[in-house]
Structure formats: C-alpha cells, structure tokens
Simulated assay, not measured.
Amino acid sequence: MRTGRAAVGAAVGALVLLCADARAVRLDAAAPTAPPPAVVAATTPTCPGQESPPGPPAVEETVAVAPLPWPAEPVGGPGLGGCGDLGPPGVPPVGAAAYVVADLDDGTVLAARAPHARHRPASTLKMLLALLAARALGPDDVVEGTADELRVDGSKAGIGPGGRYTVRQLMAGLLLNSGNDAAQVLARAMGGTEATVAAMCDVAAELGAHDTRAATPSGLDGPGMAMSAYDLALLFRDALREPLVAETIGLRAVPFPGYGDHPGFTLSTTERLLLRYPGALGSKSGFTDAARHTLVGFAEHGGRRLVVALMRGEQRPVAMWQQAAALLDWGFAQPPGPGIGRLVDP
C-alpha cells in the first residue's frame, strides 16, 4: 500500500483530535455503553522518543496532533516497559524497529523489542477495521460499490460502481488483497469515514491497545496515526476471536464479483508469510513510505499457536516474512514459561 494523498490529512484532522480526546463516536449512539478504561499518563514517557512515530512525517500528516498519553505502567506488565530488546538470550536478530512474539491463546509474551514504541501501522490497521466490521455488520449484508472506489489511493481489491458485495466478500478484499477500496466501502456501511475511524479508536481503547490511534480506515497515513507492536499483536488476537475474520484471514483465493461490464475474477492473497511458512494460518502486511514495512501473522505447531508482530522494518537484507518466520521458529522451540508479560484481555 503506497502513501495516500495529502488531502486525507486535512480531512481527518478534526476526527483525530476527537480520538485523542477519547470522545470516539460509537456506531449505535442510542445504545448505552461503558466508557473505555482510563489511562493514567506518566509525567514523562518511560522511553523518550517512542511516544510518537519517528520522522520524516508523511505528507498526509498536515495537522499537528499531540502524542497519545504514555501509560504510567506498561500495559501487559512491567517486563514490557523496556525500550529495546526484551526477553531471554538466543532470540534471532531481526531488522524491524519493534516486534512482539507471543502465545496467541494464553497471551504470554515470549520476547519483544520496544513493544510499546509508537509507529505507523500501514495496512496492518485493517485488522482493527476487520474486527469492528465483524462486530457491526452481518456477513451477508450487501453494500453497493460506487465510482468513488475507482479513485481510492493505493492497493485495491477491484470494486466498482454498480457492483454488489457482501460483507464477507468485502472482508476478503480487505484482508487478502489489502483493498483500500474495500476499507472505504466497509466504512461507508458503518456510517462513513468519520464514524468508523472514531469507533476504531474507541474499540482499541476498550481492548487495552492504548498506543493505537486510527486516522484512516485503511491504514493510509494521516495525522496522529499510531500503533505499537504490542497493540498490533493484541488487536490481531482479538480480531481472530470474530468468526468472520478467523475464516477469512487464512484464505488463499476466493471468487470476487465484477461490476458493470467487468466480469468477476479470482482474488488471491499477497501474504508471503501465509504462503511460505509451514504452519502459518494467516497474516497481514502493510507499507507506506512513512511507516515502512509492517507485518502481523500467526502459525501453529504441535497444538501451540504463536502470533508475531513487526513494525517499521525493511525487506532487505532479510524479507519481512522471513524475519517473522525466524521469530516464530525461535518461539516454537521455547518451553512453556511465564514469559516477560502478557497480552491483556479486555
């Protein structure tokens, strides 16, 4: 997914400030809901320089937005409060600026690097959108495409005017082919971009992902966009608890509708970790010029499932999926133990 247009930044600036003030719009405003858990901010961040994504800024970041509060206590336990490499000796070296490898089922974090450092998530943010859409929409709900989808920046699933798409098909377009057009259609079905992005912020806070601020539904850069490797692993785990997301993330290919005089076609995954790592069950990658490469995925060996999340990496000298594979190989070789922290439950 390449960098979006600068106009996005100005369009969502006020919305991001709404997220920052923890006044996110819920999809059903009439329904009584509990407020998200409060975050007590530290006077100064434990890891100076990690409270905001590093520069240079994206061209879309045209609105100055204050960093998210830095929790006084690290989410997931004190063992996750470090700023660099954390965990036992022998963890393979990887080039990503931040990572987390954890047990998907019991939440034990086995190793991490700068787990709460804030970075731009790029298209891995689509896991949060997928979680929200699975909660808010029925899998067989139908949404019609418009000409606006043809003008969406970055990667596309292939949605066009007059096409009719079920939420199940849109989820495939979102996760298999990282379709920014699918993200736009899902957002429209949930009340529009503003309501959807605000609800994404709300859900992240509810789940304990306090390093996360959405600025766009798709992960295209925008003012204040932020996520940590810890949050990426956490949100991926919680998204997999939604049956529609769990069913979709591991698909290799699905038939996808056409529109107008454009015939239907086969939509295929572009996720190399899923295609090449033995035991991989699903993954989502992302890229923008400012975010660099991001990746989250999970695999199973011997009845044990691990999740790995990497942020701000590069494809050379070692491809991102191979960095993830090395961490998974190491994790599966470790005996059960207390780890260095936990992925919190809501």
Rank of each mutant, 00 (worst) to 15 (best):
H116K: 03
A130E: 00
V65G: 06
P115F: 04
A64I: 12
G81H: 02
A97N: 13
V39R: 03
R118M: 04
V109E: 00
L104R: 15
G79I: 06
S52L: 14
H119Q: 12
A97Q: 14
S123K: 04
P78I: 03
Y99H: 13
T44H: 11
M127T: 14
L86S: 07
A41W: 01
P88I: 06
G82C: 08
R113I: 11
A114I: 01
T108N: 02
A72N: 14
G81M: 02
M127V: 15
E149I: 04
G84T: 14
A41M: 05
T33R: 15
T43F: 10
M127L: 15
H119T: 01
D85Q: 15
E144F: 05
G55H: 11
P88G: 14
T44C: 05
K126E: 11
V40F: 13
G95S: 13
G107I: 04
P89D: 08
P121Q: 12
E149G: 06
E60L: 10
D103L: 05
T108P: 01
G82I: 06
L68C: 01
A66P: 14
P69S: 09
V39F: 00
A134Y: 00
G107N: 00
P93D: 15
A34Y: 10
L104I: 00
A114C: 12
A130R: 05
P35C: 10
T124A: 11
D141P: 04
T108K: 05
D141M: 11
P48M: 02
V109H: 00
L80C: 02
P89I: 04
P78V: 08
H116F: 03
G90R: 12
G145I: 03
C83A: 11
D106G: 05
D141R: 11
T33Y: 14
P88K: 13
V40Q: 15
P93V: 13
C47Y: 04
E60C: 08
G79H: 08
P71A: 04
A98V: 00
G77M: 08
V143W: 01
V39N: 11
Q50T: 13
T62L: 13
G95V: 13
P35S: 07
E144D: 14
R120G: 06
P139G: 10
G145R: 07
V40K: 14
G81V: 03
A133L: 00
A66D: 15
A136R: 09
P56K: 12
P69K: 02
V142T: 13
H116C: 05
L131G: 01
S123C: 08
L68K: 00
D148H: 14
A117F: 01
P54E: 09
P67T: 07
C47W: 07
D106P: 02
T44I: 10
P57V: 13
G145Y: 02
P78K: 05
E73W: 07
G77T: 06
P53S: 09
G95T: 14
V100Y: 02
A114S: 12
P78G: 02
A112S: 03
V75Y: 07
V91K: 01
D106I: 05
D103C: 06
M127P: 00
K126A: 08
P37D: 04
V65D: 08
H116E: 05
V40W: 12
P32H: 09
L129M: 02
L131F: 09
T33C: 10
